[in-house]
Simulated assay, not measured.
Amino acid sequence: MKKPYTVKNKMRHFKFHDTLHFLQNVGKEKYGQEFRFHNEDIKILHKLIIYMIHEDIQCKKYGIDLNKGVLLTGPVGCGKTSWMNIIQVLLFQNQTFQVKSTRDIAFEFNQEGFSTVLKYGNRNKTLCLDDIGVEQNIKFYGNECNTIAEILLKRYDLLINHQVITHATTNLTANEIENIYGNRVRSRLRKMFNLISFPASTKDKRK
């Protein structure tokens, strides 16, 4: 009889499917009783789980570099933001991170100017930039800035110099990211992130 697959964190052992159901219950508490994982999500969530709990052997198997962050991609409504919030229950308190909408950051730039770039770009703590690519370039006293591109470049410097990780979510393809942010940012993203992708066929779970 095949033994059940298990993953572990620093405190205890988890059976993988028990962990999924635990996360689903957390999701129900946070987002309502309709929340659930779908069979098509299991491979993606498996990779997220082993990354978050630093299951070294499994991460090496899937080519996941624990020194990089996660770029979680997929169609609108597939659950990227929700899962990046929920998955944090597997982390110790000092490892949790803010999930910050890039659209909100762009509007902050409109109000506060270039200090916004420093606020998020130089934050010496893990940060998840949610929905990169949906924000618009905002002007501050007539000065237009690709705010998220500048923040990503600063977060890259944080990774190289201080090993501070950044996570992100997006609906965009690699080519679309390059069109918005330029080749310089796209080349940095390869060094900053492990790419974990929901299939393009994943349905909008909000409907």
Rank of each mutant, 00 (worst) to 15 (best):
D204S: 15
S82I: 01
Y120K: 02
Q93R: 05
N124S: 05
K68D: 07
I50Q: 10
G63W: 05
V76T: 07
E144V: 04
K207E: 13
L152H: 07
R186Y: 15
L153W: 08
I132E: 01
K154A: 10
M192L: 14
G63M: 06
D104H: 08
Q163A: 13
D157Q: 11
I57Q: 12
F140R: 09
N137H: 12
D204A: 15
K68W: 09
M1S: 07
G77N: 05
K3Y: 10
N110R: 06
S115K: 04
I138H: 14
L48K: 03
Y5C: 00
N171E: 15
Y31G: 02
N179A: 14
K28T: 07
T202L: 09
E112A: 09
T202H: 15
K61R: 10
R186G: 08
E55H: 13
K10F: 10
G69I: 01
K43R: 12
L71V: 02
T6W: 12
L90R: 03
K43A: 12
L159A: 05
T147M: 00
I105Y: 00
I151V: 04
C78Y: 04
Y62P: 09
N9E: 06
T147K: 00
V164I: 14
E112K: 09
D41A: 01
K100C: 06
N39E: 11
G27W: 03
F114H: 06
K100G: 02
G27Q: 08
E112G: 06
K203V: 14
N175F: 13
T173N: 08
D41H: 09
G79V: 04
M11A: 07
L189M: 14
